[in-house]
Amino acid sequence: MLLAWVRDIVEGVESFVVGMGSTARFAYENWSGKATGAMTLEYPAQKQAMPAAFRGHLFNNVSNCITCKLCAKACPVDCFVIEGERNEENKFRTSRFDIDLTKCIYCGLCTRACPTDCLTMQGGFELDPVNTVNQRGQRFLFTQRPDQLDVRLEGAEVDRLLRVSSLKPGEVGAEDRAFLDRIEDPRGTAIIAKFGVGYYTADEVKQVDARREELKKAKEAQAAAAKAAADKAKAEAAAKAAADALASAPAQEPKP
């Protein structure tokens, strides 16, 4: 019995010494910077390099998208809103490709389904609405639900939102307040809490702007031509009414 009592104590002391020894070794290895040392990454300062296969935010390269909607079919959470339309050259293209990142579970089924590999998962994982320009220069559109995607922000508006978002509540002026009210969720959720759903790269924004400008010019030119044609037709009609005999003269319709 005495021996058992002593043995209990001896075993306790032994395992205590072994344990203390191993923690001491851990501490020594940590301080001396060995392989089993500290594995902490001081995150915002040090960033981990994400592997190529990392399933981060979804990104769709719209120029390659054929609007087959296989991704939407593969998606288990229905986070895609995709619309297609025919453009002026009667070519089918994606007019709307929105991903609700609040729903996305980053499972990657959509990217496996994509036949053209235009839908990919990028390396980023940071979703900071204030600092939304990621490494690739992509920008988030601010909205919470796909049905509010009409509130699109591009170019200067995104910059403005970023500026306004970083202000403190007391520093937001009346004009900015109105701007925020206009783009804000009607339910009143703070804009800062919203997640982005889709990207445009800076280049794409430029392209879209240029294209829009082009279309605008074309439209104006068309309107001008139409007006000119109408004036001409009017004049001709007047001349016709006056002459009443020149019915065979062909009206020169401008080609749209």
Binding site: T36, M39, P51, A53, F54, R55
Partner: peptide, 22 residues
């Protein structure tokens, strides 16, 4: 947990996720 991180690193490189691998 430190050892598990090593497994997660391998998983992440192959299948892209650290927890929900799919």
């Amino acid at each position: 947990i430190g050892l598990r991180e090593l497994v997660n690193d391998i998983f992440e490189k192959t299948c892209g996720a650290r927890l929900t691998y799919n």
